[in-house]
Design a binder for these strands. Structure first.
Lengths: 138, 138
DNA sequence: ACCGTTGTAACCATTATAGTTACTACGCAA
DNA sequence: TTGCGTAGTAACTATAATGGTTACAACGGT
């Protein structure tokens, strides 16, 4: 099965470090904690920046949160790093046979059901703040 | 972003047709409604069979449900077609730096949070039965 | 001017997906 | 018994996302 990318968990990791230690939080420093290549972290920081979650200091290095960690939810992070796609968790097959009553209606019916399931998941992510996550590291 | 495979929606489509019309439900017939290659359907039918949801008739052709559509939930189907992986929706990066308090704890902390979000989604899938889906085609 | 940093482009290996061809095994019906 | 339509599967393909890597330009403080 296709799983949700580790970009998401790496982004939470990244935000935690930035929140706890803004000055040291260079791409290299975070990469050492995540244990990956600094470019991977810089890419994620770019997405977090575009989403308005962090402010990065080019030249001097480091980054800081642009919002209170109490106000940043895991859903915010999830959306930030999955920016590209239209954030539909479930794919539904299309171009079905319109001469069949199932083929004609399946897409609409499933979109409703699956969107509901996705929303439940997202609501749960929304209930956890970055602050709550960070609290478990201190 | 990586989305959940159309195998899931195709499997619901397949089960709907089998339930409504067991005798006609050959791989070719279903493939014509889904608009894909019959082998894709036969692969999905194999997974549904392994999960105990359908009974296939080799030689003669067609298939039938092994359980009442009222008792088959979308979660059953979801689990059936994602059989391979350990059904963890979210991947979490591993091998983090254990000398960092964040790196040392991130995996455990996130596994809990993300499992909770996944469970919410699954609970929602569990509340919709195949019968309810089929009802919308009739 | 130097140096460490950020921002990106480009490339790569790996993996899952969905489709395809091809072949064997099955079971009814002529 | 043979033929035919079907299921079951292996093998191959093209496509796409991922995560890592190298390389280099731009930035900014010392």
């Amino acid at each position: 099965m296709k799983q949700i990318s580790t970009r998401f968990s790496m982004a939470i990791h990244t935000l935690s470090l930035i929140s706890m230690n803004p000055n040291d939080s260079t791409g290299d420093y975070i990469a050492a904690s995540v244990n990956t290549n600094p470019v991977v972290i810089r890419r994620i920081m770019g997405m977090l920046k575009k989403a308005g979650l962090v402010e990065v200091r080019p030249g001097i290095g480091g980054a800081s949160l642009r919002r209170d960690p109490e106000s940043i939810t895991l859903l915010d992070v999830y959306r930030a790093v999955h920016a590209a796609d239209e954030d539909q968790l479930f794919r539904v097959h299309t171009d079905t046979n319109i001469h069949c009553p199932v083929g004609r209606n399946i897409e609409r019916v499933l979109q409703e059901e699956l969107q509901a399931a996705q929303s439940e998941m997202e609501r749960r992510l929304e209930r956890t703040t970055l602050a709550k996550v960070i609290h478990q590291f201190e």
